[in-house]
Simulated scan of single mutants.
Amino acid sequence: MIISKKAIAALTAATVLSLTLGAQSFAADSSFKDIGNVSGKDKINALKQRGLIKGISDTQFLPGGTVTTAQGVQFISGGLQLSLAAIDFNKAPKISTIFPKIKDTAWYAEAFVNAHFNGVDIPADIDPAKPITKELFTSLLVQAVEKAGNLPMINIVPADIADADALNPSYQGSIQRSLKYKINTLDATGKFNPKSQITRAEAAVMLFNALDYLKSVSDGDSITK
C-alpha cells in the first residue's frame, strides 16, 4: 500500500471540511432527552446534530454507559470521518488478518479498518469487547487527530499529573498532548485517572474537544499556544 502526499492532503481537506458543519443550528427535536444533567450535554448534542455520533435511539444516548473498545474506536473513526477514500489498495483489506480477535462481519470492523489505515496504532491483540480505559481512548483519539489534521510534532512543557506513576509509559506522550490540545483536563486533585473506564458521555465530550481543536488549527490558531 502506498499513501501519497496528495492522498494525505485530500484526507486532511475532507476532515477539515467536515468540521464546518458545526455551525448549523439545532432543530427543536434534535437533542438527546436523557442528558439533561450531564456535564457537556451541549457538546454531545452538537455531535448528534452534525451526524457524528448516534445514541441507542434517536432520543436516548445512555450517557453513563461504559464504552467498549469497539465502541471507542467507532467514536473516533466515525467522529473524525476516517475513511479509505484517499488510500489505494492492491487488494481490499480484511480486518481479521490485522486484528485476529475481530471478525470481518463485525459491525465495528469498518471502524477498525479505517482507523488502522489512517495511521492510528491499535494493538493487534486488542479485545473489542473489553471496556476501554481513559488512557487508551486518549492515545487512539490523539493519534487520529494528529493524522487527520496532519499536525506537526510539538514540544510542550509536561503538565504535572498527580497520578503520573499510574500511566502506561506508551501513552504518556499522547496524554500530555491531549492536555495541551484541551481534549482532556485533570480532575480537581490533579489526577488523570488513566485506568478508569470512560462513559459514553466522557468519550463524546473528548471527541468534541478534539474536533474543536482541529477546527481552531484550521482557522489559523497557533498549535503552540
Rank of each mutant, 00 (worst) to 15 (best):
K6H: 07
A10V: 08
V16K: 02
V16T: 10
L17T: 12
L19M: 14
L21E: 12
G22V: 07
G22S: 11
Q24I: 13
Q24V: 13
Q24E: 15
A27P: 05
A28H: 06
A28N: 08
A28T: 12
D29T: 13
S30R: 01
F32G: 02
I35H: 00
N37T: 13
V38K: 02
V38C: 04
S39R: 11
D42L: 11
D42W: 04
L47W: 02
R50G: 02
R50Y: 05
L52T: 00
I56N: 04
T59L: 01
F61M: 04
G64F: 07
G64Q: 14
G65F: 03
V67K: 01
T68G: 06
A70T: 02
F75L: 05
I76N: 06
L80C: 06
L80E: 00
L80S: 03
S83W: 02
A85C: 00
F89P: 08
K91L: 10
P93T: 12
I95C: 10
I98P: 06
I102T: 07
D104K: 06
T105P: 00
A106K: 01
W107H: 07
W107S: 14
Y108C: 04
E110A: 15
A111P: 04
F112L: 06
V113K: 14
V113L: 15
N114A: 13
V120A: 09
I122S: 05
I122Y: 11
P123N: 13
D127R: 07
P128R: 07
A129Y: 05
K130E: 09
I132W: 04
T133C: 10
E135V: 01
E135L: 06
E135T: 03
E135Q: 15
E135I: 02
T138C: 09
S139T: 14
L140H: 05
A144E: 05
V145I: 14
K147T: 06
A148W: 04
G149D: 04
L151Y: 14
P152F: 08
I154Q: 09
I154L: 14
I156H: 08
I156W: 10
A162C: 03
D163P: 03
A166G: 01
L167P: 10
N168S: 13
P169K: 13
I175W: 04
I175C: 03
R177K: 15
K182D: 14
K182I: 02
I183R: 00
I183W: 00
L186A: 05
D187V: 07
A188G: 08
T189N: 15
T189H: 07
G190W: 08
F192I: 10
N193Q: 14
P194Y: 09
K195G: 14
K195F: 05
I198Y: 04
E202Q: 15
V205Y: 02
V205F: 07
M206K: 09
M206E: 02
F208A: 07
N209C: 08
N209E: 12
L211F: 06
Y213W: 11
L214T: 00
K215Y: 13
S216W: 00
S216C: 03
S216A: 15
S216V: 02
S216G: 05
V217I: 15
S222T: 11
I223C: 01
